[in-house]
Design a protein around this nucleic acid. Structure first.
Length: 847
RNA sequence: GCCCUCGUGGUGAAAUUGGUAGACACAAAGGACUUAAAAUCCUUGCCCUUUUGGGAGUGCCAGUUCGAGUCUGGCCGAGGGCACCA
C-alpha cells in the first residue's frame, strides 16, 4: 500500500471536476434549487484563513445539498473596486486594474486548490465594465424614481483617505478603513434615500426567521424607530424667532419643562454668526464629536440665548433657550425640550447651569412627595405635579393621552422618528464606479443617456495628485449631451453599492441588456443560504436589503424584497500573538518552541512574549498562510481542521498541532480504506452482521442532522467515531457481508468535508459517477439492544442492556434482579415508578 | 449608561432539547514496543474505598420537577453591539 499522496489525488480530482464541468449550473425546473452564497472577497492579493473558513463552510453545504438532489448555485466573484488598489497602484506606479486582475488570478488559483464546488463560469468582477455599466443603469433608474438625490450636507470626511464616509463607516469617530479621526465638512453629495424604507426594512426583519437574532437586533437598533410627538413652542425674546419645533417621546412630562436646547446648526444660529462667543462655543462642540476623551466624559455644555420658550400646556411658564453640544441637527428638528427630572442627559445639563428640576413622575411604590435628587428617574410610574395630567400611568397611558390633548389644541401632532439616515454614496476616489451624470453651465444635473453607458473610467492617469484623480482629468470631464457641452460628475460610487446587488448578477452573469434576467432571478432568488462575517451586520446587509426595495419600488416585474432567506455568520480565525524584546510583532514562523518555551527561531536565547489569541491580521503578524498550509497538508486536511474543534459561528483557535492531527487522520483513513478494500475484493463475505448496518444508519442520521444544523464541528467528531468503530469492527469481524454497501454510504457522508479523499476512495471500490446522499433506515435503527438507565429516587444506580421495546413490568422485573439495584429495594416500599420506554426507569422508594 | 449573547475538565468542545454530564479531539502523566529516540498503540484523568462500589460535580444562591447543564427568579463574571437619537 502506498502512503496517501494528497497532492496527486487532489490534483486529479480538481482536474476531473474542471474537465467535466461538474459544478456548472443551469436552470432545471424539475429540480428544487438551492442558492448558496458566501460573501465575495476583496482581491487584496492572497486568500487568508478567514476566506478558507468561510468558503469551506459554504462548500460543505453546497456539496451536501447537491448530493441531496438540489440544483445548487454556488458562484464566486470579486468585490474589486476600492481604495487598496488605488493606493497600491499610486505607490508602485501601477494601473489599479492590472493590480486587481493580477490579485484575482492568484486568489482564484488558491481557491481552486481548496477543492471548492464553484461554478466558475459565473465569475464576476465588480470593476469590469460589463458589471458596472448595469450598476450605472440602476443608478439612473433610482434617479428617475427620485430615490437618489443630491444635497449639500455635513459629511464625515476622512482626512487620510481624502474621501467622504457614510455614517455606518465611521467607527468610534474614526474611518473604518484608515482609522483616521473623522472631520465634519460641508459638501454636495449624492444620497440614496434609504430612510424612505425605514419602516419596511424594520418590518422585513420579522420575515427573516433564520437570521441570527444578534444581526436582526443590530439592524433594528440602527434603524432606531421611536414614537412620540412633534411640539411647537412659542418663543419670546430679542430675536425675530416666533416658534421652534421639537420632537419628543415623552410629551407627558411637559410640566417638567425646564429649558429648550438647540443644535449649533439650528436655523436660529444664523442670528449668532457675528457673535464671537457663540463661534467659540460652536468650535468647542465640533471638537467634542471626535475626541475620545470628550465622548468618555460626556460633558454637556451650553450657550445661553436671550430667548424664552413658553410651555404650551401652561403659558405662564417660560424657560430659557440654549444651544447645547448634545443636540444633533439631523435628528428630530435639531431641538430638544429639556425635562431634567426624567432624562439623565437633561438632568446633567440642568445641574451644570443651575436650572429648575421638577419631578412629574413618581414610581408606583412612592408617594406624592417623591422628588428627583441624585439622578433622573426614567422609569414607569404615575404623573404628579402636572395639573390635568395628574394620575395618569406613565408612560403606558400618559404619552398617547397627552398627544391627544396637544393635537386637539393644535399644539402638536403624533410622530414617528427613525434614526436611520440617508446613505451618502459619493466618494472622491478614482477606483470606483463612475456616477453617470453630468452638469450643465448652470450646475443643473443631467443623467448620461442610457445609450452612452457605460461611463468608463479613464485609463493611464496620474494617481499622485492631491484629492480626487478624476477631477484633474480635463478631457475626460468634457461631454456633449444632445449637442450641449457639459461636465461629468467626478465622484465615484461607494463600493458598497457594488456589493448591494452582485447576488442578482450571479443568476445572469451573461445578460447583456440589463443587470439581470427576469426568468433567471425568478428561478434562483432569493439566496437560500448566505454565509459571511458578522462585521457586515449593518453595512452590507442593510444596503442590500435597501437595494432590493429600491429596484422593487414602482416596478411590477420585480418582487424581491429580502435577498437573503437565511444568514449564517461565521466566527473568526484566531492565533496567538508574539512580540520580541523590542515589542515588534513576530509572525508564527519566526518563533519556535524549545523546552516548553517560545523563542525566536534565529536565536534560541531570545525569549518571545506570547500575547493573547486574536483574530488573524497582517498588522499583528499573527497570520498563517493558507497556501503554505495547503501545500504541506493538503486541502482535505485543511478543510477538516478548519471545521473541527469549534462550532462555525464561534471564533476558532488556529493550532499547528490540530492541523497535524487532521493531516494524520486523513492518513489513517487511507490505511483503513485499504484494509476494507482488501476485504471487499477478497469476497470474504460470509456472516450476515447487523452491527455495522445499525451503526452506519445511526451515523447517517447524526451526520445529516448535524449538516442541517450547521454543527460542522460535531460532524468531524462523528467522522472520528466512525473511524474508531470501523477499526474495532475489523478487529472483531473478519467476514463481513454488509461491509461494502455500508462503507460506500460512509464515504458519501464524508464527501462534503473531504471531497478529494472521498471521491478517490469511492472510485477505488468501484463507484464512479453519480452519488446520492444515503437515507438512514429507521428499521435498522430499531433492531438490537438498548441501554436503559435505572434510577432509585432519581439517582442513577445501574444500566440494563436489553432488547428494544420492553414494557414497564418487564423492565421493573429485570431491575429488581439487578445486583446493583436489589440492595436498595430491601425492606423498602415502591411508591411510584416513572418509566420511559427504551430509556429510563426511575423507582421511587419510601424512606 | 442602554441593548444582545454566553458561562460545562488543563484546553477546544459534545449532550437526541427535561432523562447515563464530559462524546470527539488537543495537551499532560504513566506504560508497551525499541539499544535509544521519533512514530505508533494502551491506560489514567475530582474525593473516599484494594476492587465491586459510593460521594461531590456544568459561574454563585434559591425555586419548579420523580429527575435540571437544559426551565423560572435573583446575583456574579466574560464577550459583542450602540452611545448624547430627545
Amino acid at each position: 500500500m502506498e502512503r496517501y499522496n494528497f497532492k496527486k489525488v487532489e490534483e486529479k480530482w480538481q482536474n476531473f471536476w474542471s474537465k467535466n464541468n461538474s459544478f456548472l449550473t443551469t436552470i432545471d425546473k424539475n429540480k428544487k434549487k438551492f442558492y448558496c452564497l458566501e460573501m465575495f472577497p476583496y482581491p487584496s492579493g492572497k486568500i487568508h484563513m478567514g476566506h478558507v473558513r468561510n468558503y469551506t463552510i459554504g462548500d460543505v453545504l453546497s456539496r451536501y445539498k447537491a448530493l441531496k438532489g438540489f440544483n445548487v448555485l454556488h458562484p464566486m466573484g470579486w468585490d474589486a473596486f476600492g481604495m487598496p488598489a488605488e493606493n497600491a497602484a499610486r505607490d508602485n506606479n501601477l494601473d489599479p486594474k492590472e493590480w486587481t486582475n493580477r490579485n484575482i488570478e492568484t486568489m482564484k488559483n488558491q481557491l481552486k486548490k481548496l477543492g471548492l464546488s464553484i461554478d466558475w463560469s459565473r465569475e464576476i468582477s465588480t470593476c469590469s465594465e460589463e458589471y458596472y455599466k448595469h450598476q450605472q443603469n440602476f443608478f439612473l433608474e433610482l434617479l428617475e424614481k427620485k430615490l437618489v438625490y443630491r444635497k449639500e450636507n455635513y459629511v464625515n470626511w476622512d482626512p487620510v483617505d481624502e474621501t467622504v464616509l457614510a455614517n455606518e463607516q465611521v467607527i468610534d469617530g474614526k474611518g473604518w478603513r484608515s482609522g483616521a479621526a473623522v472631520e465634519r465638512k460641508k459638501l454636495s453629495q449624492w444620497f440614496f434615500n434609504i430612510s424612505k424604507f425605514s419602516q419596511d426594512l424594520l418590518d422585513g426583519l420579522e420575515s427573516l426567521e433564520t437570521w441570527p437574532n444578534k444581526v436582526k437586533t443590530m439592524q433594528k437598533n440602527w434603524i432606531g424607530k421611536s414614537f412620540g410627538c412633534e411640539i411647537e413652542f412659542k418663543i419670546e425674546g430679542d430675536l425675530p424667532v416666533e416658534k421652534i419645533r421639537c420632537f419628543t417621546t415623552r410629551p407627558d412630562t411637559l410640566f417638567g419643562f425646564s429649558f429648550l436646547a438647540l443644535s449649533v446648526d439650528h436655523e436660529v444660529s444664523k442670528y449668532f454668526i457675528n457673535n464671537k462667543d457663540f463661534q467659540k462655543f460652536k468650535n468647542e462642540c465640533s471638537k467634542t464629536g471626535t475626541t475620545e476623551e470628550a465622548i468618555a466624559v460626556g460633558e454637556k455644555i451650553g450657550f445661553k440665548t436671550n430667548l424664552e420658550a413658553i410651555n404650551p400646556l401652561d403659558p405662564s411658564q417660560k424657560v430659557p433657550v440654549y444651544f447645547a453640544n448634545f443636540v444633533l441637527m439631523d435628528y428630530g428638528f435639531g431641538a430638544v425640550f429639556g425635562c431634567p427630572g426624567h432624562d439623565q442627559r437633561d438632568f446633567d445639563f440642568a445641574k451644570k447651569y443651575g436650572l429648575n428640576i421638577k419631578t412629574v413622575v413618581k414610581p408606583f411604590d412612592k408617594d406624592e412627595n417623591f422628588e428627583v435628587k441624585e439622578e433622573a428617574y426614567a422609569g414607569p410610574g404615575i404623573l404628579i405635579n402636572s395639573d390635568f395630567l395628574n394620575g395618569l400611568e406613565a408612560p403606558q397611558n400618559s404619552v398617547l393621552e397627552t398627544i391627544k390633548i396637544l393635537e386637539k389644541k393644535n399644539l402638536g401632532k403624533k410622530q414617528t422618528n427613525y434614526r436611520l439616515k440617508d446613505w451618502g454614496v459619493s466618494r472622491q476616489r478614482y477606483w470606483g464606479c463612475p456616477i453617470p451624470v453630468a452638469y450643465d453651465e448652470n450646475g443643473k444635473v443631467h443623467p448620461i443617456p442610457k445609450s452612452m453607458l457605460p461611463v468608463k473610467l479613464p485609463e493611464n492617469i496620474d494617481l499622485k495628485v492631491k484629492g480626487n484623480p478624476l477631477d484633474s482629468q480635463k478631457k475626460w470631464k468634457e461631454i456633449i449631451i444632445e449637442g450641449k457641452k457639459m461636465t461629468r460628475e467626478t465622484d465615484t460610487l461607494d463600493t458598497f453599492v457594488c456589493s448591494s446587488w452582485y447576488y442578482l448578477r450571479f443568476c445572469s452573469p451573461n445578460e447583456k441588456h440589463y443587470g439581470f434576467n427576469k426568468e433567471e432571478i425568478d428561478y434562483w432568488m432569493p439566496v437560500d443560504q448566505y454565509i459571511g462575517g458578522v462585521e457586515h451586520a449593518i453595512l452590507h446587509l442593510l444596503y442590500s436589503r435597501f437595494f432590493m426595495r429600491a429596484i422593487d419600488y414602482r416596478n411590477e416585474n420585480f418582487q424581491i424584497k429580502e435577498p437573503f432567506q437565511s444568514l449564517f455568520t461565521q466566527g473568526m480565525v484566531c492565533h496567538e500573538t508574539y512580540k520580541d524584546e523590542d515589542n515588534n510583532w513576530l509572525s508564527p514562523d519566526e518563533v519556535e518552541k524549545v523546552n516548553g518555551k517560545i523563542v525566536k527561531k534565529i536565536d534560541e536565547n531570545k525569549i518571545v512574549k506570547v500575547g493573547p489569541s486574536e483574530s488573524m491580521s497582517k498588522s499583528k503578524k499573527n497570520v498563517v498562510d493558507p497556501e503554505f498550509i495547503i501545500k504541506n497538508y493538503g486541502a482535505d486536511a485543511v478543510r477538516l481542521f478548519i471545521l473541527s474543534d469549534s462550532p462555525p459561528e464561534k471564533d476558532i483557535q488556529w493550532s499547528e498541532q490540530g492541523m497535524v492531527s487532521s493531516y494524520k487522520f486523513v492518513q489513517k483513513l487511507w490505511i483503513l480504506h485499504n484494509e476494507i478494500k482488501n476485504i471487499i475484493f477478497k469476497n470474504k463475505y460470509e456472516k450476515d452482521d447487523k452491527k455495522i448496518e445499525k451503526f452506519v444508519n445511526q451515523m447517517i442520521s447524526k451526520i445529516t442532522l448535524n449538516l442541517e444544523k450547521f454543527n460542522y464541528n460535531v460532524i468531524i467528531a462523528n467522522m472520528y467515531e466512525t473511524y474508531n468503530f470501523l477499526i474495532n469492527y475489523l478487529k472483531e469481524e473478519k467476514s463481513l457481508k454488509n461491509l461494502k454497501d455500508n462503507y460506500y454510504k460512509i464515504l458519501i457522508c464524508f464527501l462534503p468535508i473531504i471531497p478529494h479523499f472521498a471521491s478517490e476512495c469511492l472510485e477505488d471500490i468501484g463507484f464512479q459517477n453519480e452519488y446520492n446522499w444515503p437515507k438512514h433506515d429507521e428499521k435498522a435503527l430499531e433492531e438490537g439492544k438498548v441501554s436503559i438507565v435505572v434510577q432509585i429516587n432519581g439517582k442513577k444506580r445501574s444500566i440494563l442492556n436489553t432488547k428494544k421495546g420492553l414494557g414497564e413490568a418487564e423492565i421493573l422485573d429485570y431491575s429488581k434482579k439487578d445486583k446493583n439495584i436489589f440492595k436498595y429495594l430491601d425492606n423498602k416500599k415502591i411508591v411510584k415508578i416513572i418509566f420511559i420506554k427504551d430509556k429510563l426507569i426511575n423507582i421511587l422508594l419510601n424512606e
